[in-house]
Design a protein around this nucleic acid. Structure first.
Lengths: 240, 240
DNA sequence: CGCCTCATTGACCTAGTTCAATTTGGGTGG
DNA sequence: CCACCCAAATTGAACTAGGTCAATGAGGCG
């Protein structure tokens, strides 16, 4: 089903009733498909629905004057790529497909109805957007304070933990379909330096990244090198 | 009154009824004071209320292994320093007073009641937390892509625009009580380099920063140097 | 087979760091 | 009112992580 990955994430944290699941399912309307590289949600345009990523990888990006772009977050299946467009009404950035993507639409009107009929859902959806903010903060730490080696290790840890919740890992391995140049755009490094740093991680027997597949060889040591603490992902069950 | 600065911000964007203002006022309970340097909200602890900054400057920080810290956002009067603790229940970072601060408390239970009785408030409060996320994204751009000169110029522009809404600017001048070392912690630079860069900005006749007062000498050129576009602050009126 | 994107490697360069020494200036006690 | 203190700011000199430029290799696919 369309929103299964999302439900995996919600169930991990909330006691979600069947009725609530039904309500959420019923609110999703049509789906859409995008090719790799296509813009799913353009910057600065009024949006009237939010997009749930059902399949594929996407990212939040800002384009800079010099033609460069910064990737500000990676979206994996089960993520709302732009739930924040509900309160914001327009985005300050674009959402771009990294691979072919399928999304399901949740109209903002339906969100308003959902919240009215069940205020607890407001807190759950709000929570989902706050995870993104928390990820932004952690990336800020990475880019401002961690070395290239640490940053790359940290990203591999983050994506590993996020994909595991939606059952898209295979042991310590997972598909992560970014080019080295895109990794660079996410981490504030050049593609050249990503290449050198990946080599280092390989030689240290921590991770390999080949053919868009991440293979973690030593998770404990990788976390240690990265200074990775999953607390910022808020994966534990909630009380509310 | 306690929440006047907050109301200035909300009224800038929403048609806020007297009844709504009254509801919000009534929900605020006691106030508290903090000395400069004190922790207002500690990391990783359950929180049962959110704090509105009434007076003073605060910041969101994470402490790193090596004793360093990263400032991830500057809070000015009228900002909720931890409204996101309502959906998150605990914070992934601390909130620290940069100057003596007064805060007013809004209990999470009251937020739940407010939202129940007036679902539009959910969207307004949610919106407030999404501005913070947007600021995080812009800081990510700064740290990943802008030079020291551009970063500093950008920060001065941001704070200018945010303080203007709450009427804490005096023409092109405003009190900004951070040390150069704290500026460094916010921008991912060393205090030494901040000093050199401030000198450059002074010599370029763009801004001065002396005795904790920012004096913008040429706003247009400063924005240009910074590549500053206030869109990410969402200061325009909302339709919702 | 040949093309095109992606990855790798080498040589050199630079923005910002590090370390260390002064200077400045506001606050405080005698 | 002066002497002292201490945090903050400034400046110089040497260093380094990562960038830039440019050439080469390696798949994958029409």
């Amino acid at each position: 089903m369309l929103i299964d990955k999302l439900l995996l994430k919600i169930r991990e944290r909330y006691r979600f009733t069947e009725e609530e699941e039904r309500q959420l399912r019923a609110a999703m309307v049509e789906t859409a498909k995008f090719k790799a590289g296509e813009i799913i949600v353009p910057e600065d345009q009024e949006v009237s629905f939010s997009s749930l990523l059902v399949d594929g990888f996407a990212c939040r990006t800002k384009y800079l004057k010099d033609g460069e772009r910064q990737i500000m977050e990676i979206d994996v299946p089960g993520d709302f790529v732009d739930l924040h467009s509900y309160p914001l009404e327009r985005l300050d950035h674009s959402v771009t497909a990294l691979t072919p993507c399928t999304i399901a639409k949740l109209p903002h009107k339906k969100i308003t109805e959902l919240i009215r009929s069940n205020p607890r859902l407001a807190r759950i959806l709000w929570f989902a957007t706050m995870i993104d903010a928390s990820i932004h903060r952690e990336w800020l730490i990475s880019i401002a304070n961690r070395s290239a080696l640490e940053r790359l290790a940290h990203l591999f840890c983050e994506i590993y933990h996020r994909l595991r919740v939606v059952e898209l890992t295979d042991g310590l391995s997972y598909r992560f379909p970014l080019t080295q140049s895109e990794l660079g755009e996410a981490l504030g490094l050049t593609a050249v330096h990503i290449s050198r740093t990946l080599k280092q991680l390989r030689e240290m027997k921590l991770v390999t990244f080949h053919h868009r597949v991440v293979n973690i060889m030593d998770l404990e040591r990788l976390k240690e090198v990265a200074g990775f603490d999953p607390a910022y992902l808020f994966l534990e069950p909630r009380t509310g």
